Amino acid sequence: MAKVTLGGKEVNTSGNLPEVNQTAPDFKLVKTDLSEVSLSDYKGKNIILNIFPSIDTNTCAMSVREFNEKATALDNTVVLCISRDLPFAQARFCGAEGIKNAIPLSNFRDESFGKNYGVTLIDSAMKGLNSRSVVVVNKEGKVSYTELVPEIANEPDYEKALAAVK
């Protein structure tokens, strides 16, 4: 279990992020068309997992915009934006914002993603949502970078995540 804060108040997660050099746990997540996708579908690519509570908050929305913009310059890299939001909300946001380079995915159907990546918030008013985190997976499927953002209301360190891909 890891500890983060929300507005300065301590919040616990269900576990810890995968360790650097560990094989990234596979998952099944839901795309905006309600089909499922897994980590193995992106085999051979660098993968940035932008994990957050809800697309309908300012900081979460900003992280999707930032990674969408910065991802265009990265070769053989995909950005997966993962929240517990319903795919309909993700599609609405991405359509309205013109998000083309970041792929919205939902873990609303299956709790195993949150458990396997240690990101499920287990207390507070946000219990059940994902903690703000970034995990970078290299072309070989190994974790090359992780960040559990200490204050949920803060943005992740985009430059460190992007540097882990370069």
Results as ranks from 00 to 15, higher is better:
83 S>E: 00
83 S>W: 04
83 S>Q: 00
84 R>M: 12
84 R>G: 07
84 R>D: 09
84 R>C: 13
84 R>N: 14
84 R>I: 15
85 D>W: 00
85 D>C: 00
85 D>Y: 00
86 L>Y: 14
86 L>H: 12
86 L>N: 13
87 P>Y: 00
87 P>I: 00
87 P>C: 01
87 P>D: 03
87 P>K: 01
87 P>V: 01
87 P>H: 03
88 F>R: 07
88 F>N: 06
88 F>A: 12
88 F>W: 13
88 F>G: 06
88 F>C: 07
88 F>H: 14
89 A>L: 09
89 A>I: 14
89 A>T: 15
90 Q>Y: 11
90 Q>G: 12
91 A>C: 09
91 A>M: 07
91 A>W: 11
91 A>Y: 14
92 R>Y: 10
92 R>A: 13
92 R>E: 15
93 F>A: 10
93 F>H: 12
93 F>M: 11
93 F>I: 08
94 C>Y: 13
94 C>S: 11
94 C>P: 08
94 C>D: 10
95 G>F: 08
95 G>T: 11
96 A>E: 15
96 A>G: 10
96 A>C: 07
97 E>A: 14
97 E>C: 07
97 E>N: 09
97 E>Y: 05
97 E>G: 06
97 E>S: 07
98 G>H: 03
98 G>K: 05
98 G>M: 03
99 I>Y: 05
99 I>T: 02
100 K>Y: 10
100 K>E: 13
100 K>A: 15
100 K>F: 10
100 K>T: 15
100 K>D: 09
101 N>Y: 04
101 N>H: 10
101 N>G: 03
101 N>K: 05
101 N>F: 03
102 A>C: 01
102 A>W: 00
102 A>E: 00
102 A>M: 00
103 I>G: 02
103 I>W: 04
104 P>G: 04
104 P>S: 06
105 L>R: 01
105 L>F: 01
105 L>T: 02
105 L>Q: 03
105 L>P: 02
106 S>N: 04
106 S>Y: 05
106 S>F: 08
106 S>Q: 04
107 N>K: 10
107 N>L: 08
107 N>Q: 15
108 F>K: 09
108 F>I: 11
108 F>H: 15
109 R>L: 11
109 R>V: 04
109 R>N: 08
109 R>G: 02
109 R>H: 07
109 R>E: 04
109 R>T: 06
109 R>W: 11
110 D>Y: 05
110 D>V: 04
110 D>G: 05
110 D>R: 02
111 E>M: 14
111 E>D: 13
112 S>Q: 13
112 S>E: 12
112 S>L: 10
112 S>K: 14
113 F>G: 02
113 F>S: 07
113 F>I: 05
113 F>C: 03
114 G>M: 05
114 G>Q: 07
114 G>N: 07
114 G>L: 06
114 G>T: 12
114 G>F: 04
114 G>R: 04
115 K>E: 15
115 K>R: 12
115 K>V: 12
115 K>L: 14
115 K>W: 12
